[in-house]
Amino acid sequence: MIKRDNVVTFMGNPLTLVGPEITPGMAAPDFSVVDNDLGPVSLAALKGKVAIISAVPSLDTPVCDMETRRFNQEAQALGDKVKVLTVSMDLPFAQKRWCGNAGVANVQTVSDYQAASFGQAYGVLIDGLRLLARAIFVVDAAGKVAYVQVVPEVTHEPDYAAVLDAVKKLL
């Protein structure tokens, strides 16, 4: 099991991430998560579309809430050639409740709670906390990683402009 130290912090305190470092140009690793109705979701669900995969610690926190709402707005503007997933360790039932309350319909929330498959494959599982670090992965329509942003401080929002620029270059 690969462990990487000092990649991200939480309120200034360093955390250890489990899994490999994902870099642009790599084939996007497969994963197995569940949707809000406990149905399986894997990398195959993104095939043929440009994908924004947003990993967040929990939708029930202010920054994750803001980030997912922002990507929900952006997804509407990007159209049907782009798929946006938000992955967290939140239970699928909590994700479904959150989406309903927040009016989020353009982002698919998926849960990694069962096996931490996504977190380990993408190197964003926080050791000891069993939460995901805040990170964005843009995957092209052929399944290749085009852009990666691991947010250095978990309590900060990502650089949305950089993510959107990476997506628009692929459309």
Rank of each mutant, 00 (worst) to 15 (best):
R97L: 10
D159V: 06
L43A: 05
D5N: 13
H156T: 00
G19I: 01
Q76T: 05
A146C: 02
A102W: 03
T68D: 02
V150E: 13
T23C: 02
E67S: 05
V82Y: 10
L85A: 04
N72A: 09
L91S: 10
T61D: 12
S42V: 04
N72V: 08
T9D: 02
V56R: 10
L132N: 09
Q114R: 14
L91G: 01
L78Q: 00
V104G: 04
Y113W: 09
T68M: 12
V104I: 13
K81T: 15
V154F: 06
V110K: 06
D112T: 12
P92C: 07
E67N: 11
L131M: 15
L164F: 13
I53F: 07
F137E: 01
R97N: 11
L59C: 00
S42T: 15
D112V: 13
R97K: 12
N13M: 08
R134Q: 11
G19E: 06
T86S: 15
A27P: 06
N6K: 14
W98I: 02
S42A: 12
A116K: 07
V145R: 00
L125N: 10
A141T: 07
S32A: 15
L59Y: 01
V145S: 01
L17D: 06
R4V: 09
I136W: 03
P152T: 04
V84F: 02
N36A: 05
V50L: 03
V63G: 07
L17H: 07
D5R: 14
E67M: 09
S54I: 07
Q114I: 13
V50Q: 00
G143N: 09
V84G: 05
Y122A: 00
F31K: 02
A161Q: 14
L59E: 00
Y160E: 02
P24Y: 06
P158Q: 07
D5Q: 15
Y113A: 08
N106R: 13
S32E: 14
D37Q: 12
V8H: 01
C64P: 09
G128P: 08
N6C: 07
F93W: 10
G103N: 06
V124G: 06
S88T: 10
I2K: 12
L170R: 08
R4N: 09
M1G: 11
I22S: 08
Q149Y: 05
D30F: 08
V107I: 01
G103Q: 09
M89I: 00
V104W: 05
D127C: 01
T68V: 13
I53R: 07
D140N: 15
D30H: 11
R70T: 15
